[in-house]
Each structure stands twice: as C-alpha cells, then as structure tokens.
Amino acid sequence: SEIVVAMYDFQATEAHDLRLERGQEYIILEKNDLHWWRARDKYGSEGYIPSNYVTGKK
C-alpha cells in the first residue's frame, strides 16, 4: 500500500472527507478520482483527501 505525507492541513467539510494534519502519514486506499483519493489515517479513520495536499513518502 502507498504511504503519503500531508504537506498542508485540510479541514474535512463533508462527512466522507478525512482531515489532514501537516506532516502526518496516510495510507492510500483508492485513487479512482484524480483530485480526491480515499485514505486512512493512523487512528483508522477513512475518507477522501485532496490529492494535491499530499506527497509520496521519501
């Protein structure tokens, strides 16, 4: 599975969105859409994140 790191904070506005915290790692579950990826955080929460807010883990 692909691990990404959040470059920016993202506040979830929709129920299906996942909040991003800058510097935290997330697991990508689905990339069915170019701009919104389904991800899981370290607490096990899942939701959609803006793909341009994250970068591949170095």
Rank of each mutant, 00 (worst) to 15 (best):
V54W: 00
Y48F: 13
L34V: 12
K31T: 06
Y53L: 13
D9M: 04
D33A: 07
V4P: 00
D9K: 03
E25N: 07
I27W: 11
V4D: 00
N32I: 14
K58R: 12
E30D: 14
S45W: 08
L34M: 12
K57Y: 10
G44K: 03
E25K: 08
Y48N: 08
L29N: 01
V4A: 06
N52C: 15
K42Y: 06
I27D: 04
I49D: 00
S51M: 07
D17C: 15
R38L: 15
E21S: 07
G23P: 00
Y8W: 12
E14M: 12
I28W: 02
D9Y: 05
V5M: 08
R19T: 15
W36K: 09
E30R: 04
P50D: 06
V4F: 08
I3T: 09
M7N: 06
E30C: 12
G44R: 01
L18Q: 01
E21A: 06
K58N: 14
F10P: 00
Y48D: 04
P50M: 04
K57L: 13
R38M: 12
E14C: 15
K57F: 11
I49A: 01
R22G: 05
K42S: 08
D17F: 15
L34A: 14
E30G: 06
T55L: 08
I28H: 00
S1A: 14
R40H: 03
W37V: 03
M7Y: 05
M7C: 15
H16P: 06
R22P: 05
S1R: 14
I3L: 09
N32F: 11
Y43L: 07
E25D: 08
D17E: 15
H35E: 09
H35Y: 13
K58V: 13
R19H: 12
H16D: 12
V54L: 05
I28L: 08
K42G: 07
H35M: 11
N32Y: 11
H16R: 12
Y26K: 00
A15L: 12
Y8E: 09
R19S: 15
Q11E: 15
E14G: 15
H16G: 15
K58T: 14
E25W: 10
I27Y: 09
A6L: 03
S51K: 08
N32H: 12
R38W: 15
A6I: 02
I28Q: 00
L34E: 15
K58D: 14
G56P: 15
I49F: 06
E14A: 13
H35S: 09
E14L: 12
Q24F: 08
T13C: 15
E14P: 04
W36R: 11
V54F: 03
V54N: 01
Y53W: 07
K31D: 06
S51Q: 06
R38A: 04
Y53N: 04
Q24L: 09
D9C: 06
K57G: 10
H16K: 12
R22T: 10
A39P: 00
L18R: 01
K42T: 07
R38S: 04
F10Q: 03
Y8K: 11
Y43R: 06
H35I: 12
R40S: 05
Y26T: 01
Y48V: 07
R19F: 08
R19I: 09
Y8Q: 10
I28F: 02
L34R: 11
E2K: 07
E2G: 08
S1W: 15
R22Y: 09
Q11W: 13
Y8R: 13
K42L: 07
E21R: 07
E2S: 09
L29V: 09
A15D: 12
S45Q: 15
D41M: 01
K58M: 13
S45N: 15
R19C: 15
K58E: 13
R40P: 02
R22W: 07
W37G: 00
A12T: 10
E46T: 08
E14F: 11
K31M: 08
E21F: 09
E30Y: 07
I27G: 02
S51C: 13
M7K: 10
V5W: 09
D33R: 07
Y53G: 07
A6K: 01
H16C: 15
V4N: 02
A12W: 04
D17L: 15
K42Q: 11
S45Y: 12
A15R: 10
P50L: 05
E30I: 05
W37F: 05
D33F: 08
G56W: 12
G47Q: 00
A15W: 11
W37N: 01
G23S: 04
T13G: 08
S51N: 06
R40D: 02
Y43E: 09
G44L: 03
F10M: 05
G23I: 01
Y43K: 07
T55A: 09
Y8D: 07
E14K: 14
Y53T: 04
S1I: 15
E14N: 15
K42C: 07
T55H: 09
E30W: 08
S45P: 01
L20R: 00
V5L: 09
F10C: 07
V5H: 05
V54Y: 02
E14Y: 12
G47I: 02
F10L: 08
D41A: 01
R22M: 11
E25L: 10
G56C: 14
K57W: 09
E2C: 15
L29I: 12
V54T: 05
E30N: 10
W36L: 06
W36H: 06
K31S: 07
E46Q: 06
E25F: 11
A39S: 02
L34W: 09
D41R: 00
Q11N: 13
V54P: 03
A15K: 13
L29E: 00
R19V: 10
F10D: 00
H35T: 09
D17N: 15
Q11F: 14
D17Q: 15
Q24E: 15
V5G: 00
D9R: 02
Y48G: 02
L34C: 15
F10R: 11
R19N: 15
G56N: 13
D41W: 03
V54M: 03
V5R: 06
E25T: 10
S51F: 05
K58W: 12
R19L: 07
W37S: 01
A12V: 08
L34S: 12
V5D: 00
Y53K: 08
D9F: 05
N52Y: 10
Y48T: 07
G23W: 07
E46A: 04
A12P: 15
R19P: 14
A12M: 06
E21G: 03
L20Y: 01
